[in-house]
Design a binder for these strands. Structure first.
Lengths: 210, 210
DNA sequence: TAAAACAGACCAACCAGTCGGTCTTTATTT
DNA sequence: AAATAAAGACCGACTGGTTGGTCTGTTTTA
């Protein structure tokens, strides 16, 4: 057993993160890893398979974490907390994977793309489910349209890959805390709407008017 | 004066949106536009310049809108509303531009990249400013860390390009309404925290404890 | 000693960009 | 108004460099 395969993946991750999938040649990967074309193609069928492997390790991990969070908690509120927390933390563990995931997925070959899409949809479904449960059980504001709210949450978290730095002002755990706070503040039914409405020009379309 | 230039941009937008910048050749652009290499290179110095033009038209527009919203309102709450609304609406007007903007900016040549970065930072600065003003004037929750909150807002909005479809369930205006609602719900100081804290395992790090 | 792991020269395909030339529009002169 | 000149718009065969991938062989491991 050799660890060349892992070394190739790590090198590629760095390079892809900085220059993008198409900005890096197999030759560069091979040189930076101190190996050869032969070494590379012994472990990977193609450059495209390497791209797939990177996608797959990340999404598989995220999916597993979400499932775990789903199982260990039963009430929607701790569920949301757990999912957001583990999801945010992933960006510290897998930052380069994620950059590649969101920047280069367009270039996955159809067969690979399908497999990734399946897992990604599964994850999305789980997040939406938790919100839905919470709305039905009365823990969360019922007036919020599920799809828009769900995508808002996914968006704010996913975007982390664009700005997060390990040496930044805040740790990943602090970011997770703030994000959880933000999400719960708009999910939980809160203060009397009257105060909120004072600032509104009109009642939003999705508020039940009776 | 000819309109070939515009036609080339439109075709490129479609193709880039579907296959990415590197998934489309100049030959393809030229064929789809019913022109020739000569026609293309008469209007653009290079493929990279085309990429820049696409980036620039979008970010310039967004910046102008934000500045307008900033000028027409003075209080932070309507300002936030106006900025979010115009920002979200952009995704209907410039969807293909934005896809290219967020997927391919890595491949901008240094000189181009710098110019775009300047405008993008300027926009970000404006958004952060509005939040900051609101916090200082007491309209918004002071405990929220500016950077994290700001990036959360930018993230949820920016992510729209990944999922928005014109023929989707909700119009862009409805999405803007919901997003504004979400943002204001976590920005505005609300109900007594006690109810919220009941659900928390601990007091978040960013709440002043005295 | 056989199979797996790796080396590196080589190739065919592709692609951004060029260049000499043509057609079309506009400006200038007669 | 006609003739001429000049500039702008557009054409498409061609090229030089690059790139993913192959193939034959050598070394290492089990």
């Amino acid at each position: 057993m050799s660890d060349l395969r892992e070394k190739i993946i790590q090198t590629s991750l760095e390079l892809f993160d900085r220059h993008g999938f198409h900005g890096v040649t197999v030759k560069q990967i091979v040189q930076q890893t101190n190996t050869s074309k032969g070494g590379f193609y012994h472990h990977f069928q193609s450059k495209d398979e390497l791209l797939f492997v990177i996608h797959d390790t990340f999404i598989t991990y995220v999916l597993k974490e979400a499932q775990a969070a789903n199982v260990t908690h039963s009430s929607p509120i701790p569920k949301v907390q757990a999912i957001i927390q583990s999801f945010v933390q992933v960006f510290d563990l897998y930052k380069p994977h994620i950059s590649v995931f969101y920047q280069e997925s367009l270039y996955l070959k159809p067969a690979y793309e399908e497999e990734i899409k399946g897992k990604r949809d599964e994850f999305k479904r789980m997040v939406f489910n938790v919100i839905d449960e919470g709305q039905k059980s009365g823990h969360f504001r019922k007036e919020l349209p599920l799809e828009i709210t769900g995508m808002a949450i996914l968006g704010m978290v996913n975007w982390i890959y664009k700005w997060y730095r390990r040496d930044g002002t805040y740790t990943i755990d602090q970011i997770a805390e703030v994000f959880t706070d933000l999400v719960l503040h708009f999910l939980l039914p809160g203060k009397e709407d009257s105060e909120y409405f004072r600032h509104m020009l009109k009642v939003p379309f999705f508020y039940e008017s009776e």
